[in-house]
């Protein structure tokens, strides 16, 4: 009898083998990505992104965006379905519309990300800017109404802000929300949800978060990004 294994099943097998053989927190074979290239970003783009997402979500008692893997999340999103234009109607022509008509650019999110990053990085090396000055620069960026090449500045800005938010709070299977940083911060217990007995009790929930793959497939750690500032 022949057997087929999914990649996921194989990873899980590796995971359980490691669990059997080690007492420390297990990691699967691909856990350490520091030596791996990004899926979509260049190293320079990743550093620049780390600088801006950490303005959106700075470190306090809880990790910053980049510490929680938001750059890894964005990299993965750009390389996969969403970034590649899934769920996006891209037939022309592409006349300019009103804000009420929504997105009208002839490009995928990944193409827009590259175009916007290229323009902004060419203009301002955010990583070289002192950390204290970055927030004011980002605030200025949010108020611009110019074009970044073919991309309206505001469209690029909103995309980056929403990706950052998603990366901080999405299930860790997407490589952000490392160690459930976002979920611990607000107190969201995660994907394993049965609350029939507790509805209306007005009591705090001290349930540690559990993601979709909790205890099955361990999360990859965010890549280390050397930042200036």
């Amino acid at each position: 009898m022949s057997q087929l294994f999914s990649r996921r099943a194989v990873l899980m097998q590796i995971g359980s083998a490691v669990i059997a053989g080690a007492s420390s927190v297990p990691r699967h074979a691909f856990a350490d990505l520091d030596s791996q290239p990004w899926f979509f970003l260049t190293d320079d783009e990743a550093r620049w992104l780390a600088a801006i997402v950490d303005v959106f979500i700075p470190q306090d008692e809880f990790p910053s965006a980049s510490q929680a893997g938001v750059v890894d999340f964005i990299d993965f999103q750009m390389a996969t379905g969403y970034g590649q234009g899934e769920g996006l109607y891209l037939k022309g022509p592409f006349p300019e519309g009103t804000p009420q008509q929504g997105y009208q650019l002839p490009m995928t999110p990944a193409e827009m990300m590259r175009a916007g990053l290229t323009e902004l990085r060419g203009e301002t090396d955010l990583t070289a800017m002192p950390t204290a000055d970055r927030a004011a620069w980002v605030d200025d960026l949010s108020n611009r109404d110019n074009m970044l090449g073919d991309v309206p500045s505001s469209t690029f800005f909103e995309e980056l802000l929403s990706l950052t938010n998603e990366g901080y709070f999405a299930d860790p299977i997407y490589r952000g929300n490392a160690d459930y940083a976002g979920w611990r911060m607000v107190g969201f217990p995660g994907a394993h949800a049965y609350y029939t007995e507790r509805v209306g009790d007005n009591k705090p929930t001290n349930q540690p978060p559990m993601g979709i793959a909790h205890g099955q497939l361990n999360q990859v750690s965010p890549r280390k990004i050397e930042q200036g500032g």
């Binding site: 379905g81 969403y82 899934e86 769920g87 998603e166 709070f169 999405a170 299930d171 299977i173 997407y174 995660g190 994907a191 394993h192 949800a193 559990m210 993601g211 979709i212 909790h214």
Partner: peptide, 14 residues
């Protein structure tokens, strides 16, 4: 669940 309880995939990526 828990696979269905994926906010990004279902609520945001439709």
């Amino acid at each position: 669940g828990p696979e269905e309880h994926d906010e990004l995939k279902y609520a945001l990526r439709y």
